[in-house]
Simulated scan of single mutants.
Amino acid sequence: MMNKFNLLLLFILNFLFFSCGSNNGNKKSDFSLKLDQNKSEFKLNQSLKASIVNTKNKNLDSVSFYIGDQYLKSSKNGDFNLDLQNVLLGNQRLKAIVYSEESPDTLTKNIKILNTEAPRVYTYEVINTYPHDVNAYTQGLEFHGDTLYESIGQYGKSKLRKVDLESGEVLKEIKLDDQYFAEGLTILGDKLYLLTWQEGEGFIYDLNTFEKTGTFGYNQSEEGWGLCNNGVKIFKSDGTEKIWILDPETLAEKSYIQPTTHKSVATKFNELEWVNGKIYANTYQFPSVAIINPKNGGIEALISFKGLKEQLGNTDSLDPNNDVLNGIAYNSNTDKLYVTGKKWDKIFEVKIVEK
């Protein structure tokens, strides 16, 4: 058994170790990061000017500038001037790592980068309608070939199903355990990925058999909303301003974009769909779909589906607050786009036209 002297010595060593670490971590920097005109909001393609304030005139070796983890450029004198072109939009952190005669200092400033132009505005034409189960609280909708796959939410009622578009017939279906609220889905290869809402995990199914073959955690995000993929990467919304980009092998949240207009950063994007190189995303409880640039998060266009709900045959039985537009499916074989909603009695084939 350890004697009192050894216990005392161990306590003193631990105290010194943690005290030294704390002092080093809280050391006040001799430098500060200053933005030109104290500006914190910028637009894509504008110039961002910053400088390092060196109050004690220490010798600077160089300064490296980043937005988040994206390296931008280095400076010898601490001055920084960059045209914001190939950068991510949204709420970002400008970071400067100062290399001087002492250990490197890391300085940060919160900035916001907005899109340059207002989103284009589109409306729609209904080309055709197809039957949809009025009990289906639609969360995810996606084609694989010409076959439609749908995830249905709500606790105790969540399902995954394979559907014939023309007839509305359910070709295959499984029910989730009652503790799960199903959310968005996407198909990559022979695997189907399904989110749950607040349960912190997603499920992986064999596309043909619907046999569950694995699960994945959400890591940094707390909720699951929508999923889509571009054949290589998987994109996931969580109700916040972030659309996460997942590693297709591990499903880990590796990075994210923030859907952003010329005025603000947007939130509450629910169902996602990959359409001709863009992300289509509906805003929960609004009859609209945003067209998002997956490279930087810019909202390039908005599709208004106002009036579509009034074309349903079961409007009297719908909850106006919850039974809303939700469900976007693009058939790449036919270049046709379809939308529906929670407990709607129709799936609409639509043509998008400029307003």
Rank of each mutant, 00 (worst) to 15 (best):
N293Q: 13
I291L: 10
D345C: 09
V339M: 01
G307L: 08
S332W: 06
G298Q: 14
T283E: 12
Q311W: 10
N326C: 00
G277H: 09
D323Q: 07
D316T: 15
N282W: 00
I257S: 06
S288W: 00
G297S: 11
K268Q: 14
K336F: 04
N293K: 10
G307C: 10
L272I: 06
Y284D: 09
A281E: 00
Y338R: 02
G277L: 09
E310A: 11
Q258R: 09
L337N: 04
G313P: 10
G298V: 07
E271Y: 01
V265Y: 04
G298P: 11
Q311N: 15
L272P: 02
I328C: 00
F286P: 01
T334N: 09
Q258P: 07
N282L: 01
I257G: 05
P259L: 14
Y256H: 15
Y338T: 03
K342R: 04
S288A: 04
I299N: 06
E310H: 06
N296A: 08
V324R: 06
S317Q: 14
K295F: 06
T283V: 15
P287M: 11
E271L: 01
I291S: 03
L325N: 02
E273A: 04
D319N: 15
S288V: 12
L325S: 01
Q285H: 13
N293H: 09
D345R: 05
K295Q: 15
N293M: 13
Y256D: 12
I279Y: 02
V339F: 04
V289R: 01
T267Y: 12
G341Q: 03
N276S: 13
G341H: 02
L308Y: 06
K278G: 00
Y284M: 06
S332A: 14
K336D: 04
Y338F: 13
P294W: 01
A290R: 06
P287T: 07
A301L: 07
N331C: 13
E271C: 01
T334L: 14
K306I: 10
K263I: 11
E300Q: 11
N282Y: 01
K309E: 14
N322R: 11
L312W: 12
V324G: 05
G313A: 12
D345T: 09
Q285K: 15
N296L: 07
H262Q: 13
N331R: 09
K295D: 15
T340N: 06
V275L: 09
G297Y: 08
G297W: 08
N276V: 08
K346G: 10
E271S: 04
N296K: 08
T283A: 07
F305T: 02
D323G: 06
K263Y: 05
N270R: 00
Q311R: 13
G307K: 12
S288P: 00
V339Q: 03
F348I: 05
E273W: 03
V265F: 08
G277Q: 07
G307F: 07
I291T: 04
D335W: 08
